[in-house]
Each structure stands twice: as structure tokens, then as C-alpha cells.
Amino acid sequence: MLHFFLKRLALAALVALTVSLISFSLLFLAGDPAIALAGEGATDADIHAIRTQYGFDRPVMEQYLFWLKNALAGDFGTSYYFKTPVINLIAEKMPTTMILGLSAISFAILLSIPLGVLAAVKPNSLFDRIALFISVIGQAIPSFWFGLILIVTFAVKLRWVPVSGSDSWQHFILPTIVLGYYATPAIMRLTRAGMLEVLRADYIRTARAKGIRPGKVLFKHALRNAVIPVVGLAAVQLGFMLGGSVIIESIFALNGAGFLAFESISRNDFPVVQALILIFSLIYVLLTLLADLLNAWLDPRIRVA
């Protein structure tokens, strides 16, 4: 178990390193950073000074190692636009994105697991078919468009929730739904498939033979086993959601890391973009690691070897 965990940890570190290399090289594709940093109207002398100051005249590999060393210490450089440390910017915006991501995955799980269980209890019933049909429809709706439609309907016409911004919890309702619904069909289908398989298992018959109440058979004996693969999927989906927050936060002008990423891209503020790519990747890697641990914890066959 420990061996497995250490191996996964090493892999995670290697993945993070590779992503850092990729996101660093983005900066180079972006053109001369000194010119960008100096801003408009800078003289050649200014640019030259910045180039030496930031070490942009050194060999690429050296710069990467320098950047990596700083990044490991939490220093991702200075924003071209704000002229403040990148890490401060991200630290300020990340909580909003985290809240959005967590509430979206909670929304998705709370919606899709009960639906998946119910669909599996009566496979091919009317309910099952409707749930399946809705999930097919749901998967075909582009989220940015869905977001706009929700804004028109619930914020503009019905005035139930605010249109945009991130000042109160009401501002998170629509973004949560839009970000969450996209993960719902996948989680629902996996829950349904898992439940269908588990409900055929001998130990379910044993539980029924013991006279355990039908609801408890379903949720204690069946769901507990069917949910194990769902955990991994949910973790992966949460990772994708945080990445997808770029679109959703832009639509709702939700002032989080995704919105910051979008604005930084528009402003060619590449130190910020670079850092965000790396951080989103790291979060994804950590989430999958967490999912593996959760799986091991949920499945005694792995936990108690």
C-alpha cells in the first residue's frame, strides 16, 4: 500500500515537472518577454535593462531551472499587467474558483448518484429511459450557451439571481449549475452501470435474505460497492471543471482564477497564464492521487491487504 502510494507520488511529481516544462516553453513562444514587461513606449535601453534584470539573456535551460527553482518556492514571477507577484494574484482569486468547483461537483454528485441508483433499480423503465434521454441531451448542450440561456431566464427575466459578479452566494448558483450539469451524465451513467452490476451480486441476495430493508439494501449494501469507481470519475471531473472554470467564470464575470486566466490571456500576461496552467495541472494530479487514496480507503480489499 505504501509502496503503491510512493509510486503514485513519484509519478505525480514527474507529471508536474513535465507540465512545468510545457508551460514554461509557452513563455518563449510568446515572444520577447522583456518587451512585454517593459510596456509601451519603453526605450531600447529600458528593454535591455529588464532583459538583464530578469535574466532573459541567459541560456533557455538555465532560465527554466531558475524559473523552476523559484516556482518551487512559490515565486512565479511578476505579472506584466499588474506588476505584482503572480502568486499573490492567484492566491487572491483561487478560493473563488475552488468554491465554484467544489459546489459544482457537489451539485453533480447530489443529482447524478440518486438518479443513477433509481435508474438502475428499474432498468429500462420509463424513469430510466427519461434519465438516460436527459443525460444524452445534457451532454449535447454547450456549457457557455447553457450559461447564457440561464442568465436570460433566471437573472434577467425572472430576476431570481444576480446576473454576474461574485459578491454573494447567490452569484454562485447559476455558475454551479452550468459547471456541474456537464459532469452529471457521466457520473449518472457510471453509477447506473455500477449499480446494475452490483445488484446482481450474491451478497445483495444475502442482504435481502437477512431481511434488511429494501432501502438499506440499496444504499448500504449496493451503493457502497458501486460508488467506488464513481469516486475516481468525480475527482477527474472536478479537475476538468476547474479547467472549465475559464469559460464559466468569463460568462458570469465570476472573479476567480479562471476569469483571471482568461483576462491574462487577453492581455498577453504570460507569467500569470503559465503559473495558472501549472497550478491547474498540479491540482488535477493531486485530485487523481486523492481519488486513488479514497478508492483504497473505500475498498477494504485494497486497504486491508
Binding site: I22, L26, A30, G243, G244, A261, I265, V285
Partner: peptide, 19 residues
């Protein structure tokens, strides 16, 4: 694994912005 860990939308946006 590396590819999956990278946020598609963000990377795509960044590269499109670059080129």
C-alpha cells in the same frame, strides 16, 4: 497522464492567443 492533467481550454486559449 500529462496531457489529461493540462487544462484543455486554458492551454488552447493560450496557444491560440499566441499564434
Amino acid at each position: 497522464t500529462v496531457r489529461l492533467s493540462m487544462p484543455v481550454v486554458l492551454v488552447a486559449l493560450a496557444v491560440v492567443a499566441l499564434f
